[in-house]
Computed example of a mutant assay.
Amino acid sequence: MSDQLKLTGFKVYKTNSKSGGYSYSRKDFYKINITTGRFLFNYAERSIETEDTFLFFGNPRIPYSCEPRSEEHYGYTCLFTEDFMNLNERSESLLQSPLFKIGGTPIFGLNETQKKKLTGLFEEMIKEQETEYAFKDELIRNYMSLIIHEALKMQPSESNIRHNNAAARITSVFLELLERQFPIESTDQPLTLRTAQDYAGYLSVHINYLNSAVKEITGKATSTLISDRIIAEAKALLQHTDWNITEIAYALGFEYPTYFNNFFKKKTGSVPKAVRSSHL
Rank of each mutant, 00 (worst) to 15 (best):
T119L: 02
S47N: 08
F263K: 03
R194I: 10
G269T: 12
S227R: 10
S97G: 11
S172F: 06
L191S: 02
F263P: 09
N33S: 08
G20E: 12
H279G: 05
I207F: 11
V12C: 13
G21Q: 07
F54P: 06
P60C: 07
W243M: 06
F254G: 00
P183F: 02
I226R: 00
T36H: 11
G253K: 04
F80S: 11
T224V: 14
L175T: 02
Q4V: 14
T105Y: 04
Y143A: 03
R141H: 05
T53H: 01
S97R: 02
E138I: 08
I184S: 00
M144K: 01
V173M: 11
E130W: 06
S93M: 05
K101L: 10
I207A: 14
I102F: 02
Q197A: 15
Y256S: 11
Y24S: 02
F56H: 14
N208D: 15
D28Y: 14
A221G: 08
F264W: 08
F254R: 00
K27Q: 06
S172A: 12
T222D: 03
L40M: 12
T50K: 06
L94C: 01
A249Y: 01
G37H: 01
S23D: 15
I102P: 10
Q239P: 02
P272T: 11
I245D: 04
P257M: 08
D188I: 02
D228E: 15
K101I: 05
G120T: 00
T36P: 03
D198K: 07
N165K: 14
L210C: 05
F80I: 07
F39M: 06
P68D: 03
G58E: 03
L191N: 04
N261W: 09
